[in-house]
């Protein structure tokens, strides 16, 4: 019984200093409780043997029985206390570990989310870089040609012009070669009347009055037909250098005031600023109306057909009038 009471006695801990000391003390108490539970079985067996001997040897059996009852009750209560404290500590330990694991899971989830965010950011950056590498569609030069005025020979009172674009390189080369061939094969009689500074009305009224090669020799003409600067086509880059009035600014012969080289900086200029001369080079499509772009291939084809048909006749003045505009 003395051992039982000694085992049941609680050790009062001193004041802990920090968390480590508290945990150490709790672990020590837990281990002591487990040791007491282990020793409880031996104590109960030894108490049973003691009471059995006392009951057989002692005359006062009633006192022995009463003592045995008290001891059994105390042993049972002590066992319940031990088991309660041990189970409470085990539960507390398990809950602490589960909470710690839950916190660690949250941290790992946070790390995974961060890593996923980094992956998404990297993918987005790579996609943006690759998308910048992709070449945007580059549209070629586009020319605005007056429709109906030069063909009919009327005055330039109409403000209706139709655009024509040479979308493909083959059409563009065909167009240039057709123009060159037409000019080159033109008879001298046609081009012997001189060239005026504002040729359009007069040239329309006088068919075949194209004085391209009057003031220059044939050798020079051949040389200039080969030169790409002979008929420099107007582009949007030269719009800033041209005056707004077309009649006064249109020279009869191509000069250097009209640059033939494409100007990339003028690729985003408006489509028509000077409708008679304008030719713009576009880089992007999205800001323009789609109808205009749909009209240009058909117009260019019509223009090529007209040029080629006029080339055979060689007497049509409209072509020269038309070419005179350039």
């Amino acid at each position: 019984m003395e051992t039982m009471t000694a085992a049941a006695s609680m050790k009062f801990p001193r004041e802990p200093a920090n968390y480590d000391e508290i945990s150490m003390q709790q672990s020590m108490l837990f281990s002591d409780s487990l040791k007491d539970l282990k020793n409880l079985r031996k104590q109960l067996y030894s108490a049973a043997e003691y009471f059995e001997l006392s009951y057989t040897n002692d005359d006062q059996k009633h006192v022995v029985v009463n003592t045995l009852k008290d001891y059994a009750i105390k042993a049972l209560v002590n066992t319940v206390d031990h088991l309660g404290s041990v189970t409470f500590k085990v539960n507390d330990l398990l809950d602490e570990n589960i909470a710690e694991v839950s916190g660690t899971e949250l941290r790992v989830s946070c790390l995974e989310q961060r890593l996923r965010t980094c992956h998404e950011y990297i993918n987005r950056e790579g996609l943006s870089q690759q998308s910048l590498v992709i070449n945007t569609p580059n549209y070629h030069k586009r020319y605005i040609l007056p429709v109906g005025e030069t063909m009919n020979g009327g005055l330039r009172t109409k403000s209706k012009y139709e655009g024509c674009s040479v979308d493909k390189g083959d059409e563009w080369h065909q167009f240039r070669s057709a123009i060159r061939a037409t000019i080159h094969e033109a008879p001298p009689s046609i081009a012997s009347k001189g060239l005026s500074s504002s040729p359009t009305p007069r040239l329309v009224q006088q068919p075949g009055n194209f004085a391209f090669s009057k003031s220059m020799p044939k050798k020079d003409l051949e040389r200039r037909t080969v030169s790409p600067h002979r008929f420099p086509l107007l582009r949007s880059g030269s719009l800033t250098r041209k005056p707004t009035t077309p009649k006064s600014s249109r020279p009869t012969t191509p000069n250097q005031s009209r640059p033939t080289t494409p100007n990339p900086s003028s690729g985003r200029q408006p489509f028509i600023s000077d409708p008679r001369k304008s030719a713009s080079m576009r880089i992007r499509v999205g800001k323009e109306s789609p109808k205009e772009f749909e009209q240009f291939p058909s117009k260019s084809k019509r223009l090529l057909k007209a040029l080629l048909s006029r080339r055979k006749s060689k007497k049509d003045d409209t072509l020269y009038t038309y070419l005179d505009e350039y």
Binding site: I98, V101, T104, E105, V108, E112
Partner: peptide, 11 residues
């Protein structure tokens, strides 16, 4: 707890 620890270890 063991299952959570296993999952956590894999992650």
């Amino acid at each position: 707890l063991n299952e959570k620890l296993d999952t956590l270890e894999r992650r």
